[in-house]
Amino acid sequence: MKQKYNRIGLVGIEQEEYDSIKAQYSGHIIWHQSIPKIVVKEGVLYMEKSNGIGMLPVDKVVYYGIYDNDFEFITGLAIWNGDCYPNAAAMVDCRFKIPCLVKALSLSRFSAPRGFVSAGASVNATNDTVAKWGNWHCGENKHRFTGEWESEFTATIEPYYEGEAVRIMMIGDTYWQIKLEGDDWLKSIHPENAGFMPVDDDLLADTLHIKEALKMDMIGNDYILAKDGSKYLLEVNHIPNITRFEDVRQVYLSTVMEWINK
């Protein structure tokens, strides 16, 4: 029988969410707002202490956030193969944006053709085109162009679709549709006028299919509702923002607590 240590690790959780979890959990917590050192040995995950020197074994890990150096960390969690929320193996598969997009496009009803540009290569676009690179979201690392463009980074390219940008977000079985906003063509969840809207059943079904196929516990799929009525999957967020809206935050916390207490 697997030994229990009555100890969980919280990684990337902000102060307010940590306080909420701590108030509801009677065991010990190791809390890190940045990526900690870990060791996996004989099926046990050891995590460096929040304070002081040394490592302690943990039973479960809750991870939230995106960091420059997090891929190796979540790979370690996947090798451990212990209780992790979200599913560590799914996070490994979805951490890098372009490979995750490849998987999602093969699953989505609303795939649109993509192009690809190597770092240092040039491409000539006769139509309005968007290039995307890197592994960040929130409107970063994107460039809109027509004509000749040389990419400094490895990038995908896609047509620019005029329309309404939305996100289908799911935590467990709970879901929302959020209208993304912004002052220009770059849209995200962060502007004050971004908010909830009625859920499109087709987009919800598409997101659920992708979520289940990729074995994700939470997901945020961004789509464009084009002016001609067409719908296009833009990208997949494997760690969607849970703090922007209080309703989402509360569902996240209740889901995490239910999972911790299983």
Rank of each mutant, 00 (worst) to 15 (best):
Y18I: 02
Y18H: 14
S20W: 14
I21F: 03
K22F: 11
Y25L: 04
S26F: 07
G27N: 01
H28Q: 14
W31I: 05
H32N: 07
K41V: 10
G43Q: 06
L45P: 03
L45Y: 04
M47A: 05
N51G: 09
N51Y: 13
G52K: 08
D59K: 07
D68S: 12
D68P: 08
N69K: 10
I74E: 01
A78G: 00
A78Y: 05
N81R: 08
N81S: 13
D83V: 02
P86S: 07
A90R: 04
M91Q: 15
M91G: 10
D93E: 15
D93L: 13
F96K: 13
K97I: 06
V102S: 15
F110I: 07
S111P: 06
R114D: 13
G115D: 08
F116S: 15
F116H: 15
V117S: 11
A119Q: 13
N127F: 10
N127R: 13
V130Y: 09
H137F: 14
C138T: 12
N141A: 12
T146M: 09
G147D: 03
E148P: 01
E148S: 13
W149N: 06
E152F: 01
T154W: 10
P159V: 00
E162G: 14
G163E: 05
V166R: 10
I171D: 00
G172I: 08
G172P: 01
T174C: 10
Q177S: 09
K179F: 00
L180E: 01
G182R: 07
W185T: 04
N193R: 14
A194N: 04
A194W: 00
F196V: 02
D200M: 06
D201P: 00
L203P: 03
L204P: 05
L204R: 09
L208S: 12
H209R: 15
H209K: 14
K211D: 10
E212H: 14
L214T: 01
D217E: 07
D217G: 03
N221Q: 07
I224K: 09
L225D: 04
A226W: 03
A226H: 12
G229P: 03
K231V: 06
K231M: 01
Y232R: 09
V236T: 15
D247V: 05
T255Q: 07
N261G: 01
K262G: 07
